[in-house]
Nucleic acid binder design. Structure first.
Lengths: 141, 141
DNA sequence: TTTCTTGCAAATTTTTTGCAACTTA
DNA sequence: TAAGTTGCAAAAAATTTGCAAGAAA
């Protein structure tokens, strides 16, 4: 389902433009980490520009709308920050990404322990907890 | 201190060359995530080649000697897999990296929960648990 | 001597920048 | 209309590839 992201965009201090709504629509619809190239292909018929997409991704990340996800792939992937709390298991060979539901309490506990140790931060805006291994299919090969 | 990594290199099926020992020496000595360019500068007087460094990093990652670390910077950083178990807190503005000692039991628990949920993996070779926020210095600005 | 490694040059890919034209508020 | 956005062209930066020469086992 495509939500209307106008409020979120405006709330973060951006002007509401079609492409920004489109980009967030794709994130909301696809529910997986995506990169600039992917967005470009989806929006190609709308004559979008890759440069604009890059700029949008960077600015949305700075404002906490998107977060980077490191899939150990060639380019940078992003996800909605406000997504359902989950983590990734990534196959080191085929790079396929599987989600799993991390227990929010568990990771919150780890974060509070970290903040007690490190006095350079007041708070944490988001975190990554990703597992890397070789999936069963690739192990067989 | 610089350890001798010859055995590790040979054990993973590589030939023991000076540059491979040098690269692992740097990782062992510096104890922080580093990228190809950094290694290149450290070894510059030895007339090293960036291409060789890239190839070494990629092959060492595949064999589980190194792991990628995503610092949300321009290039790819690596760390020794066999390092002391720790995690990172990264400032989204200045990109400075702070370490903290994650409790190994806690993250092992999360990993076992993940493996129960997801049946596509038998085991996990390594994981990332990194926190992102804005450090106190950058908050003041 | 066989196999793996390295270096060089060049290519590819991803991401960024400058600037003028265009939109949103 | 003022301030922020976009598109185009071009540049910059990071990483990869092919191939011949060199080094390890």
């Amino acid at each position: 389902m495509i939500k209307d992201f106008s409020y979120l965009i405006k709330d973060k201090g951006f002007k509401v433009t079609q492409i920004r709504k489109d980009i967030l629509g794709i994130f909301s619809n696809d529910c997986k980490p995506i990169n600039a190239e992917y967005i470009y292909k989806v929006l190609k018929n709308k004559k979008t520009n890759l440069v604009t997409i890059y700029r949008t991704l960077v600015s949305f990340e700075k404002e906490g709308i998107l977060k980077r996800v490191d899939l150990h792939k060639e380019s940078v992937y992003y996800e909605l920050v406000d997504d359902h709390h989950h983590h990734h298991i990534i196959c080191l060979y085929c790079k396929k990404v599987y989600n799993f539901n991390g227990c929010k309490e568990d990771s919150d506990l780890l974060i509070s322990k970290a903040l007690k140790q490190n006095k350079d931060f007041n708070s944490i805006s988001h975190h990554s907890f990703d597992l890397f291994g070789i999936c069963k299919k690739c192990s067989k090969k």
